[in-house]
């Protein structure tokens, strides 16, 4: 368990989480990047450079 950098709420990571993964804060919806897993460190995820979504 770690905390959201945007709202401070608890954020749970998967047991097999890896650096570079993107997780959503379930409290505020912020998109967070896993920087490290031991101990867990999150940062606000960067915007996509090339968006293949909408």
């Amino acid at each position: 368990m770690t905390t959201c950098t945007e709202c401070g709420a608890d954020v749970a990571l998967h047991d097999d989480a890896e650096a570079g993964e993107i997780v959503d804060c379930t409290t505020c919806g912020a998109e967070l990047e896993v920087i490290d897993v031991s101990p867990p460190v999150l940062e606000k995820a960067p915007e996509l450079e090339e968006d293949w979504g909408e």
Partner: peptide
């Protein structure tokens, strides 16, 4: 586990499959 974005790009460019 990792971002969907690069998978979507790979599907479109390398395999001609469009997804969202």
């Amino acid at each position: 586990k990792r971002g969907a974005n690069r998978l979507l790009k790979g599907l479109a460019i390398e395999h001609q499959v469009l997804a969202l």
